[in-house]
Design a protein around this nucleic acid. Structure first.
Length: 728
DNA sequence: AGCACGCCGACT
DNA sequence: GTCGGCGTGCTC
């Protein structure tokens, strides 16, 4: 409430330039209105130096995505430093200068961005109402990064800051922090020696360099310790390090590895499931420089690590790395921005390989860190396939839903260890089957799965896209279909009956198991929820591969391969008898890549194909979705760069695919732009060639800002997403 | 989002 | 003349 009272009483009007304007305006407008003193800070004592504060008001709306100037009252001078949280009066009421109505607008939160000597705003300035806390939470690096992310994703700075700066907790702020520990010694390369450029990468980090690498990790549990060593090497150079992983479980693994390597108290763990106080306390310890190393989940990508020397993203193909709040930034992209802006090292690690990662290598931005073929063979399990042809010939398979090869491998594996069974999540894909005899409905041309794409409408083949008109069951002649979804639980029950002597455990959406003992057991899991087995699994069965591959999504192949590799990496190596059976057509590219354990080759081939077709990430895309008319209006209004190409709009699938959400599925139901009840939604994709991404984002942003400023109604609003995740 | 301003028609 | 409709534009 400070500073308010000084403005209340009357007093003579000020006569300085900017105020005069306001007065003239006022006088001209209505002579009958008594010449009131403009609401002004004059009369209240001002800060002597730099009396103007530039403030970012904390509203995500695009048309407010700029700074507003406020006067700094003398008594706030000391605490009103750049980066602090403030409260200011903001709103149209502020312009009402009629007598008796002094303060309009309401108190809203903001960040003080900068102190300057004068304002270029021509009206009278309102005073800062309050400095919430003297903690400068928004430093220049974080501000710059947030700005860059907002620009990249056609979003507002305030929206990004909401993701980047955790909510304040007063008690956490009061905690005194000790001095940061001195840099540790540079680590031994350890298992990094398995990779061609591994040891060199560590040496560069320890020597203060900024190498950038795409690292294809060998299967097995060593990755966490390898990341910890990279962090240690960076700390040894006197710089800080940041590691972002997709979920709490991998975060715990890296946390543990860091603790083992560095000792306790030298790194912070920033995950979403910590309470507000803890989160803010850890975040502050990082910002204040008391802790130099951070591991966390996606919100940690903005962690204000001092003197950042290395950023790491693990498993960038996991959908959890894509934030589900506007403007939907992706960890890999944000860390790329950080590496470029801060001139620090960059490490993207994964057992698999995304097309984007392959592009980083192809463009020369990063170097590949990979193991030689003999290392891969030594670390990976043996992979065998069961295709449709085998299935058709396999009577036992049809009866029991499990191919004979899978039976055999499971039985053998169970002799000396646990066997992992990966089953796609229930509802992953609408899988159609004969309502009478449960025979799966397959395309008569390619044997691909038939899917009911647009609600009650036609049946389409998930592979070749041919429409199936008059389907009838080749087995029993039935003509009614129903979705046949066999989830993990039922699979577990069936397997339990088949191997009555063996315990069956399930891990999935509702309950994720972290680890299982190394004793014989069947472990049924959905993708991403696989427990780690002590000593590794003896075998793994990857069931219903076609369902993973058949998703109508550009990433279906890459995603399936990633999930298979994610499961197969938990299996013992070939030398120790580790075997994987994947039930999917062996001629398909992702299946071959799994058999050869060559995720990079797969990504490189995908990348070439995407380039040819003009698909992302080679071109950049943005999705504009909303009610049909709203999308059309938006496309009419937006001034796109000349090389932009508009695809569509086309009606959106209803309901939207939910299977592409995060891996564990632990997250809440994801709103992928669900059409409001009754209203038909459409989506247009806008594509630009490489290099025009920024101008596309700029154009989308200004068009959206203009529309929002005009206050378009709820039903006329469109949603913009740069780099949409699921493009059919 | 709010909220005031201003330019048009109906009424005292 | 004056009240009040809502369309437009601004918020330091």
């Amino acid at each position: 409430m400070s500073g308010e009272d000084g403005q209340r009483g009357g007093g003579a009007a000020g006569d300085a330039g900017p105020e005069q304007l306001a007065l003239v305006r006022e006088a001209v407008r209505k002579a009958k209105v008594p010449r009131a003193k403009p609401r002004t800070w004059r009369g209240a004592a001002l800060a002597k130096e730099l009396p103007v504060a530039r403030v970012l008001v904390d509203k995500g709306v695009l048309h407010l995505d700029r700074y507003f100037d406020y006067a700094v009252p003398e008594e706030l001078d000391a605490v009103a430093q750049p980066g602090v949280r403030v409260r200011v009066r903001f709103g149209a009421g502020g312009r009402n200068v009629r007598q008796g109505r002094r303060e309009g607008g309401s108190l809203i939160d903001g960040f003080l961005v900068e102190r300057v000597a004068e304002s270029d705003y021509s009206g009278p300035l309102a005073a800062l109402a309050q400095v919430v806390s003297p903690e400068p939470v928004l430093g220049p690096e974080l501000l710059g990064l947030a700005r860059a992310v907002a620009d990249r994703y056609a979003g507002s700075l305030a929206d990004v800051l909401q993701l980047a700066v955790p909510p304040r907790h007063a008690r956490a702020e009061a905690v005194e922090l000790g001095e940061p520990a001195p840099p540790p010694a540079a680590p031994e390369p350890g298992t990094w020696l398995r990779y061609g450029r591994g040891a060199g990468f560590l040496r560069a980090l320890a020597g203060g360099g900024a190498p950038r690498a795409v690292w294809t990790a060998l299967p097995g549990p060593e990755w966490a310790e390898e990341i910890a060593r990279a962090v240690q090497a960076t700390l040894a150079s006197g710089r800080g390090a940041l590691v972002v992983v997709p979920a709490g479980r991998p975060a715990a693994r890296v946390d543990e590895a860091l603790g083992a390597l560095l000792g306790e108290g030298r790194h912070a763990l920033l995950t979403a499931d910590a309470g507000q106080e803890k989160r803010y306390r850890e975040w502050l310890a990082v910002r204040r420089g008391a802790v130099r190393a951070v591991v966390g989940t996606r919100a940690a990508m903005f962690a204000p690590v001092r003197d950042l020397g290395l950023v790491v993203v693990w498993d960038d193909g996991d959908a959890s790395h894509s934030d589900d709040n506007a403007p939907f930034p992706h960890v890999r992209e944000v860390l790329e921005l950080r590496a470029s802006r801060d001139k620090c090292a960059f490490l993207l690690g994964s057992w698999s390989c995304t097309v984007e990662a392959a592009q980083l290598v192809e463009s020369g931005w990063a170097v590949p860190v990979v193991a030689g073929r003999e290392q891969v063979r030594a670390a990976a399990p043996l992979v065998r396939t069961v295709g449709d042809g085998d299935l058709a010939r396999d009577e036992a398979a049809r009866a029991a839903r499990l191919p004979s090869l899978a039976w055999q491998v499971a039985r053998e594996g169970l002799r000396d260890g646990p066997v992992l069974v990966q089953v796609p999540r229930r509802g992953y894909v609408p899988r159609m089957a004969c309502a009478r005899c449960r025979e799966p409905a397959r395309c008569r041309h390619c044997a691909g799965p038939l899917e009911a794409r647009d609600g009650a409408g036609a049946l389409l083949c998930g592979w070749c896209g041919r429409e199936e008109g008059g389907w009838h069951c080749p087995e029993c002649g039935g003509y009614r279909l129903r979705a046949q979804i066999v989830g993990a639980r039922r699979t577990a029950e069936e397997l339990g009956r088949a191997f009555p002597a063996v315990p069956v455990r399930t891990s999935g959406r509702e309950q994720v198991l972290d680890t299982v003992p190394g004793t014989p057991a069947l472990v049924v899991s959905t993708p991403g929820a696989e427990p780690v087995a002590e000593g590794g699994y003896a075998a793994a069965l990857l069931l219903d591969g076609w369902a993973m591959l058949g998703r109508p999504d550009l990433r279906a192949g890459e995603d399936a391969l990633r999930r298979w590799i994610g499961a197969a990496a938990l299996v013992r190596n070939q030398g120790d008898g580790g075997t994987v059976v994947v039930v999917a057509e062996p001629t398909l590219r992702p299946v071959q890549a799994l058999v050869r354990w060559d995720p990079v080759g797969h990504a490189v081939r995908e990348l070439a194909e995407r380039a040819e077709l003009g698909f992302p990430p080679v071109s950049r895309m943005a999705a504009v979705s909303g009610p049909a008319q709203a999308v059309l209006d938006f496309l009419e209004a937006v001034e796109l760069p000349p090389d932009a190409e508009v695809l569509g709009p086309v009606p959106m699938d209803a309901p939207p695919v939910t299977g592409a959400a995060s891996d564990t599925g632990a997250g809440r139901a994801r709103r992928v732009g669900a059409p409001a009840a009754g209203e038909p939604w459409e989506r247009a994709l806008i594509r630009v060639p490489p290099g025009s991404g920024a101008s596309l984002a700029g154009a989308l942003k200004s068009a959206q800002a203009a529309r929002m400023a005009r206050g378009v109604s709820e039903g006329a609003r469109v949603r913009i997403r740069v780099d949409p995740l699921d493009i059919g």
